[in-house]
């Protein structure tokens, strides 16, 4: 089974949970920018592991499915059609063999996930199928690519036309439609920001700059300044680390964060808010409110619990519907 890329869209990459354990040799984690959305897309097609899904950016691809299969689309709201049937998102959809799936523009947000039953089965590199464009591992989707799909048991075709399950997930807990303020923890050099900059960081509105990507979200807005320049040596950096380069434009490192860096570290985004920032597109507003490590850890724990619970609920429903052999 394979999927043929007829049009690649703006930027499509295969992503799984990422590539932990190799930072010491300079290889970052990469992985899906919006991990909960990635995980729920997989859950909806009955994938139970670390299957790779397609992360689309702003404008989705057009794909032809060689064989009938189940797919699911989550993340940023996106128009999806198979032939002349509009497909819902946040549910599983059956596509007959030969279907051409057209993903359009995202109505809001920046990244949608397309999971397919069995997962996209490209060769794993260092234990992961994630593309890491920054590190030169994997690459973006191109016209004419053939994406292999893993074998997974499926029930017999329920229909010979595209067709969705009668229920869908409520996307609201998993997509930040209101673009709420993000929680920022003070970083190692936060205290060295001058008074005006500190004020601007916590009360001002920034906008995602157009040169943002999977490596970093760059923030237009107030230029921030330190009381005095700092000479720093390189230390490890993480997704969510907010750095302040000499330009004064803060940048937040994202999934393809380099493993080390030498810019002042003025903040750390709460991990539960990383997917929210990942979903802000160039021009979208970003505000920060101050939080503590305890609050951030607590929010992350609660989100993981909610995600685990929903994951189990989806598995039960799929089994009950008898449509997927989970």
């Amino acid at each position: 089974m394979s999927v043929r890329v007829l049009k690649p869209g703006l930027l499509g990459t295969l992503q799984d949970r990422g590539r932990p354990g190799h930072a010491a040799i300079g290889v970052g984690r990469a992985g899906a920018m919006d991990l909960p959305a990635w995980r729920l897309a997989n859950a909806l097609v009955g994938n139970r592991g670390n299957e790779a899904a397609l992360e689309c950016t702003l404008l989705g691809p057009t794909l032809r499915f060689e064989r009938a299969t189940w797919i699911a689309i989550t993340g940023a709201p996106i128009a999806a059609r198979a032939g002349d049937t509009d497909l819902p998102t946040w549910t599983a959809c059956w596509l007959p063999a030969g279907s051409v799936l057209q993903l359009g523009r995202m109505a809001a947000g920046c990244r949608s996930y397309l999971a397919v039953r069995g997962g996209f089965d490209v060769a794993a590199v260092l234990g992961s199928r994630s593309s890491d464009l920054h590190a030169g591992l994997g690459r973006a989707l191109q016209t004419g690519d053939t994406l292999p799909v893993g074998n997974a048991a499926s029930s017999a075709a329920p229909a010979n036309h595209p067709h969705a399950l009668p229920w869908r997930l409520d996307p609201r807990p998993w997509f930040d439609f209101a673009q709420t303020p993000l929680m920022l923890l003070p970083g190692s050099h936060h205290a060295q920001l001058d008074e005006v900059s500190r004020q601007a960081l916590h009360t001002g509105t920034f906008r995602v700059a157009s040169d943002s990507n999977r490596t970093a979200s760059r923030l237009d807005g107030a230029r921030l300044q330190l009381c005095a320049p700092l000479e720093l040596i390189s230390e490890a950096t993480l997704p969510g680390t907010m750095q302040l380069p000499p330009s004064g434009q803060p940048i937040v490192l994202m999934a393809e964060a380099p493993v080390t860096g030498g810019y002042p570290r003025i903040g750390q985004l709460a991990a539960a808010d990383l997917p929210r920032l990942a979903q802000r597109r160039p021009g979208d507003p970003v505000c920060f409110r101050r939080g503590t490590l305890e609050q951030a850890a607590d929010r992350l724990r609660r989100r993981e619990h909610a995600l685990d619970a929903l994951y189990r609920q989806i598995a039960r429903r799929l089994q009950h519907d008898g449509l997927l052999l989970a």
Binding site: A24, S234, E235, A236, L300
Partner: peptide, 28 residues
Amino acid sequence: LECVPAYASVLLRFAPAAWQGDEAASAH
């Protein structure tokens, strides 16, 4: 735990679930 060495520092990146904190002590 994953160790990331740099010039004069080591980052420890841990699985929070495996080092889960309680009232007595946080994961950190």
